[in-house]
């Protein structure tokens, strides 16, 4: 072998036959190839999961059990009523009033956000009281949610002050609103829907639980996923949004998310901390914009 041949071989950046892709990455790329080929029906894998028959049966059993109990209690009352004409002294004399907290909660509900109040108890707060997040803040957060989903850039822009240091997902983007918008468009291109389920106060900020969902991430079996955001305000504008990474603490969920990012953006440099960051996110938005049409071509509904 001459020296030129040897030099070429030595310069091979991938020596031997290394397994450069993990199984998850291989699976994801196979899914991508199948989707582009039309082997996989995206509509089929994205359709909502029907309730389990077992659940229906359980429902039926519960209904029957309730009916039986109802009949038995009714019969017992019927047979025992002559002996109990006089009500016991401890019986409350008045009808039950609506709890004040419920009324307060309803009165404080400016949008649909509070109707879906947080089901999970945030790790950072233990309060179970009705939300006391200022109406103005809730309205702004609701506006954030709707403009995100509607892609209304002008409206979205007004929700951030130019001094915002971080974008909604804690992507490090130097607070450049244009970059934020570019990223948002990337998100929208993937038809990612943001649903803010509810907010609780956190000092002078608001801690909100949000769910991301959408056809593309569902097609990749990586959605919906839930995160929490801490919204900071300057007046009525959102000045700072920090993501509290819930899923990152679970290894499986963490990898699920990372796999997804790696699939849509193979060159992404993911750094997981208390949140997560993506290096050069400006390029990511553009890359997603390029990536999403491929799903359209693949027959995505």
């Amino acid at each position: 072998m001459n020296s030129v041949e040897q030099m070429i071989r030595d310069a091979n950046p991938i020596q031997g036959e290394p397994e450069l892709l993990s199984k998850a990455e291989l699976d994801a790329l196979l899914l991508l190839a199948k989707t582009r080929s039309g082997i996989v029906d995206v509509q089929e894998i994205t359709k909502p999961i029907e309730p389990d028959k077992k659940d229906r049966r359980g429902w039926l059993v519960a209904a029957v059990a309730f009916a039986v109990v109802f009949v038995l209690v009714g019969a017992a009352m019927l047979f025992s009523s002559p002996a109990n004409d006089t009500p016991p002294a401890t019986t409350p004399p008045t009808t039950v009033a609506t709890p004040a907290t419920t009324v307060a909660a309803i009165e404080q509900t400016p949008t649909t956000l509070v109707e879906n109040a947080i089901e999970e108890t945030p790790t950072t707060t233990t309060t179970e009281a009705a939300p006391t997040v200022p109406v103005e803040q809730l309205a702004t957060i609701a506006a954030y949610e709707s403009t995100w989903n509607d892609g209304d850039e002008e409206a979205f822009r007004t929700l951030f002050t130019p001094s915002a240091e971080r974008e909604a997902d804690n992507f490090e983007m130097s607070g450049d609103v244009d970059v934020i918008l570019k990223h948002m468009r990337g998100r929208l291109a993937m038809e990612l829907e943001l649903s803010i389920e509810g907010c609780t106060p956190l000092g002078d900020k608001s801690l909100c639980t949000a769910t991301f969902d959408g056809l593309v991430p569902r097609a990749m079996s990586y959605a919906p996923w839930r995160d929490r955001y801490i919204f900071s305000f300057e007046g009525e504008q959102i000045s700072h949004i920090e993501m509290v990474c819930i899923i990152c603490w679970e290894q499986a969920a963490e990898w699920r998310f990372m796999d997804w990012i790696k699939t849509v953006e193979p060159s992404a440099q993911l750094v997981l901390s208390d949140g997560y960051t993506l290096a050069d996110s400006e390029e990511k938005g553009a890359a997603w914009l390029e990536w999403a049409p491929k799903w359209h071509e693949a027959g995505r509904p």
Binding site: I14, L21, L26, E265, P266, S267
Partner: peptide, 17 residues
């Protein structure tokens, strides 16, 4: 898939590969 990916990766960037 692995060897085809390696082939592509030797000739272009990771995402394009």
């Amino acid at each position: 898939a692995q060897v085809i990916y390696a082939y592509c990766l030797r000739r272009t960037t990771t995402d394009e590969a």
